[in-house]
Design a protein around this nucleic acid. Structure first.
Lengths: 168, 168
DNA sequence: CCTTATTTATAGCAATGGCTATAATCGCCA
DNA sequence: TGGCGATTATAGCCATTGCTATAAATAAGG
């Protein structure tokens, strides 16, 4: 069907004063967003687990559950999935540990998160809002956009500190 | 439990060289993000329906499905929900129409979407990436952040045009 | 060593958002 | 008016991500 810019619709009229975006391109955006949504949770878990290990020396289910604001069985289920995906190792009734792959993902997420949060702060947004919004935005930032954020933070050395450690 | 900045953990040590964020605050971020995720789809639908009505004079399920890249029954199910929520009106085997409430939501989403996309463009990001990322980011932008984006776009009149009509 | 509190595992339920296959309806044209 | 193509509705399936309730395992202390 493809109703795009400058195309002719079934009534024979030149469409597009409305300037609807190209259909194929739009579908790609939506697909990408749906894909991101699937990986968001995984990234949140891995990032949080890395933080807890760095902070406490271990990551326990109860602590993860508390931090995420969900129930412990919800965490248990997700950890199984992470283990199946090779991101963590579980020892029954022991803490959770990141595999090499998990560590790499955590490093990546952590840095991206930090860039996004710093960027929002550099824009003049309050620390609290920056924290909240970064949590949602980070998973939807492409490499190109992340680079632009990083460059902006670099130029405006007004980074008030995003309240997280810098990437090592 | 609450392991926060400068608190004492069960080992009796002053925590927090790791600088973990406050637990209550973090839980709030995650909760908010989960909430946003729930409303994202609704907003995507309403925004798209508004675009289609403006462009084609009507919004049909098949067209919505094509644009979103999902199957028609998926759309049918979601439309039932939107109707139950009072955002649209459905006439069997006819197109979909926005209620007053739906129109208002569409207006809001459309404007927010436009601001985010324009902002990314103003940052120097390519039109295509801006379009893709805006689709994911828009739902996670708070009022404060949106205002900052708007201000930035205003200052840097480099808006290369986001490929969407301006908010009316 | 046994008890008890903490932690983890498991079972089972609900809502959401996908899908395919198929039935029902509408609109149009012969 | 009848039929056909396009559109919408419905049924039934699956995966995901939440939940509560409860069982099982561990660790720690007496």
């Amino acid at each position: 069907m493809r109703v795009g810019v400058g195309m002719v619709d079934k009534a024979g009229l030149i469409e597009n004063q409305g300037a609807l975006v190209d259909a194929d391109a739009q579908v790609e955006s939506f697909r990408q967003t749906r894909n991101n949504r699937r990986t968001e949770l995984v990234e949140d878990y891995v990032e949080l687990i890395a933080d807890l290990i760095d902070h406490d020396g271990e990551a326990r289910q109860v602590e993860i559950a508390q931090r995420l604001g969900v129930a412990q069985p919800t965490v248990a289920k997700m950890l199984k999935r992470l283990a199946a995906d090779g991101l963590i190792q579980q020892r029954r009734y022991r803490g959770v540990f990141l595999t090499a792959e998990g560590k790499e993902l955590a490093r990546h997420c952590r840095e991206r998160h930090h860039v996004v949060e710093s960027f929002l702060c550099a824009l003049g947004i309050s620390a609290e809002t920056a924290r909240n919004d970064a949590e949602g935005i980070e998973h939807h930032v492409s490499a190109e956009t992340l680079e632009a954020f990083r460059a902006f933070v670099g130029k405006n050395a007004t980074d008030a500190g995003a309240g997280r450690e810098p990437p090592r």
